[in-house]
Amino acid sequence: MRAVVVTFPGSNCDYDCLQVLRKVMGVDTRFIWHREHELGDPDLVVLPGGFSYGDYLRAGAIARFSPIVEAVKRHAGRGGIVLGICNGFQILCEAGLLPGALRRNESLKFRSHDVHVRVETTDTAFTRAYRPGQVLRIPIAHAEGNYIADPGTLERLEADGRVVFRYTTREGARGEGGNPNGSANDIAGIVNPAGNVLGLMPHPERAAEGVLGSTDGLGMFESLVAHLAHERVA
């Protein structure tokens, strides 16, 4: 299995992703600069968090026109796995690989703290190592994480089981206090219809080693490694 982490000018979670994939998971992982035109046929592409292009205009709006994003689209079109975390999620929405948009947090504040998210489906390449309904404690760090889509899109996401992570309380309940940013339907992460492109605002890579205070995010990387190993055999 081989992974690439795309670095845009302003990415700042690229090393965290490299650390988890390479050091914790033992995956052959390298960085790829956003000006490149080819990904080099990896199994997994990660768009990391950060502030690509300073978040000018809108978060992710300018990064989506980087040459590498065309290669990411081709990879996704072939069924390749793409994981967008935080700014990566924003870029995937701006690029049209995921529906909807991420707006300014309802509080207008940059929120940087742990949240609880519930695993809504384990039937994805990203979540098969979790238990259905498992509540994870994972950090967020964003000012624009307020997910919105038109009502028809939200209905389809729900009906098709494409809401993968939802903000909840510690106990896994929706409502009071769980949602940190005002996201529609408490949505923290979604997948595309084919299930190979996932975007989420929380940072699983920052909760993947004991020294970081939580290992709840590690399951996502374990899921991906297991999924890709299985695919390779199949």
């Binding site: 205009l57 809108r58 709006a61 300018i62 701006e94 909807g100 948009a101 707006r103 919105i148 038109d150």
Partner: peptide, 8 residues
């Protein structure tokens, strides 16, 4: 193409 987000 760029300046406005059609969703929001």
């Amino acid at each position: 193409k760029l300046l406005a987000n059609p969703v929001t």
